[in-house]
């Protein structure tokens, strides 16, 4: 009974704020996945791009003492690995799932090596919370949406921007065209492979931003393998959201609820082993995939080199 009253006494509003905050990297990964897949390239290496970006953000942030430069370094590192993925899969026409997996392995290896070889013990100063004037004073809603760190706002804006760009601009139309029917797009004068390079590199930059979030907003220091499946959850969110930014955003929130609940339950020593709470996001990802896949259709030309 004591547990129940503890449960009711928890700050559920701050839990929802936490859910939104921790969804950031998954949303960014999902946006990256959408850009790549809409143009017809599978990007299963989002996880690796995030990991490399996290290390780059950490190392550059520590060396320069600037969190902002760390953030830029992370984005660049993600884009660089994505460029590699683009070359392997577009120019050399390698199986894109294999290329992506190999790059994931590469990311694990190189970051673990650099981390151990240079053994930096300092950490990066994380971005402060920005309270939006007036809006943050609104009860409940203010605390959930307007008392966050900068990348949270930026990510929400990005979701809207990518949604509009994908469905309302020439670039978006071309991207969708080369993902559905590259030959027809080519006939209409669209440079298919050039567009794909652009989209895959942008996708890496987004994943890089998501990876950098771990350093510049979440924890400030690097640990090997710290992305813990967020890139893959981003992919699942993308599928569940039917390859649309807004859909993926909502799906990503679903994955981060258990984590936020877990933090709160640990505070009150809930009689559930923490490992089971820790499993929930992964179980949810599978459930979501199983539920969504038949309903949602990927772009028609996905995975096929042109």
């Amino acid at each position: 009974m004591e547990f129940l009253s503890d449960l009711l006494g928890l700050n559920w509003v701050s839990m929802l704020a936490q859910t939104l905050n921790t969804a950031v990297p998954i949303v960014l990964a999902a946006l990256g996945g959408i850009l790549a897949e809409r143009s017809g390239v599978i990007n299963i290496a989002l996880e690796g791009m995030m990991l490399i970006a996290a290390y780059a953000a950490f190392a550059i942030g520590v060396v320069t003492g600037s969190t902002l430069l760390g953030l830029c370094g992370g984005i660049a590192a993600g884009a660089l690995l994505a460029a590699f993925h683009a070359v392997i899969s577009i120019k050399y026409r390698t199986d894109q799932t294999i290329s992506g997996t190999v790059l994931n392995i590469f990311a694990v290896g190189i970051t673990a090596y650099l981390y151990r070889q240079f053994n930096m013990t300092e950490s990066v100063e994380t971005f402060q919370q920005w309270n939006i004037p007036i809006l943050s004073d609104i009860p409940v809603i203010g605390e959930i949406f307007f008392q966050q760190q900068p990348l949270v706002y930026f990510t929400i804006i990005l979701v809207g921007v990518v949604q509009l760009a994908l469905f309302r601009t020439t670039w978006g139309l071309r991207t969708r065209a080369i993902g559905e029917h590259p030959r027809a797009a080519d006939t209409a004068g669209i440079k298919v492979n050039r567009m794909r390079y652009l989209n895959v590199i942008l996708s890496g930059a987004l994943a890089g931003l998501g990876g950098a979030w771990l350093i510049v907003e979440a924890v400030g220091s690097f640990t090997p393998g710290m992305t813990t499946g967020r890139g893959f959850m981003g992919l699942a969110a993308m599928i569940f959201g039917n390859w649309t930014p807004i859909g993926a955003f909502l799906a990503a929130l679903l994955f981060t609820i258990p984590g936020a609940v877990q933090v709160k339950l640990q505070l009150i020593n809930a009689p559930i082993p923490y490992q089971f709470l820790g499993m929930l996001p992964y179980i949810l990802t599978i459930v979501v995939l199983v539920g969504a896949v038949r309903r949602n259709k990927p772009p028609a030309a996905i995975g096929k080199p042109y």
């Binding site: 392997i88 050399y92 026409r93 390698t94 199986d95 294999i98 290329s99 190999v102 790059l103 392995i105 590469f106 694990v108 290896g109 190189i110 673990a112 090596y113 981390y115 151990r116 070889q117």
Partner: peptide
Amino acid sequence: NVTPAIISVLQAFIIVFVAAPAI
């Protein structure tokens, strides 16, 4: 005096090239 993690880097490069023989 090199961290064993260099092995994973080595292995990663090996499979990048095996996976993309065209390179």
